[in-house]
Simulated assay, not measured.
Amino acid sequence: MAIPLCVQCGTRQNPCHCKIVGPTLGVVAFLITAVVEWPLGAALYCFRRQKARRLLHHPNRVVYPRVASAIPF
C-alpha cells in the first residue's frame, strides 16, 4: 500500500528546494477542517450567506497555507 504524499518543488525554504512534510500535513489538516466546517457552512448558508461563504473557504484560504508553510521540510 502506497502512502500518499504531497510534494512542492521550487521553494526557497530549504536547501533541496522541495517540501514533502509541510504540504502533506497541510492536506491532512485541510481534510479534517473541511469535514467539520463544510456541513456547518452548508446549513448556515440558508440563513447567513456571507458568513457561510467565509466558513466554506476557510480550509482552503487559511488552514492549508498556514500548515504547509510552517514546516520547511
Rank of each mutant, 00 (worst) to 15 (best):
P72E: 12
K51N: 06
P59T: 04
C16D: 13
Q8R: 15
I3V: 15
Q50D: 02
T11W: 03
I20W: 06
G26H: 05
A43M: 13
L25P: 00
G10Y: 13
N60C: 13
R66G: 08
L55Q: 15
V27A: 14
A2C: 07
L55K: 11
R53H: 03
F30C: 04
A52N: 05
V21N: 05
P15N: 10
H58W: 05
F30R: 03
P39L: 08
N60L: 15
A34R: 02
C16F: 11
V28I: 15
C9W: 12
C16V: 13
A2G: 01
G26Q: 06
R66N: 10
Y64M: 15
L5D: 05
R49W: 03
K51G: 03
H57F: 00
G41K: 06
V27M: 14
F47I: 03
P59A: 02
G26K: 04
M1D: 11
A42T: 12
N60H: 15
F73D: 14
A29F: 01
L44C: 07
R53Q: 03
V28A: 15
C46K: 06
L31Q: 08
V63C: 03
E37A: 05
P4Q: 08
V7E: 09
G10S: 13
L31T: 08
V36G: 07
V62W: 09
M1N: 10
E37P: 01
V7L: 13
V62A: 09
R12V: 11
A52K: 01
Q8H: 14
A34N: 04
R12G: 15
R54S: 06
C6Q: 14
N14T: 10
W38Q: 02
I20P: 04
P59S: 04
R49Q: 09
V21I: 14
P4W: 00
A29H: 05
F73N: 13
R61G: 02
P65S: 10
A43P: 05
I32G: 09
L55E: 06
G26Y: 02
P65H: 11
R61W: 01
P39A: 00
R54T: 01
L31P: 02
R66D: 05
C18I: 15
Q50G: 01
F47W: 14
P23F: 09
C6W: 11
W38I: 07
V27Q: 10
Y64D: 10
G10N: 11
H17I: 06
W38F: 12
V67D: 06
I20G: 02
A43F: 08
S69D: 13
K19D: 12
P39V: 04
L55P: 05
R53L: 01
V63N: 04
T33P: 01
C46S: 12
P65C: 12
V35W: 12
R61Y: 00
W38R: 00
P72I: 05
A70F: 13
V62Y: 11
V62L: 11
R61D: 00
Q13I: 04
V21Y: 03
A43K: 10
A29M: 07
C6I: 15
V7Y: 10
P4T: 08
P39N: 09
G22L: 09
T11R: 03
C6V: 15
W38L: 11
P59G: 00
A70M: 06
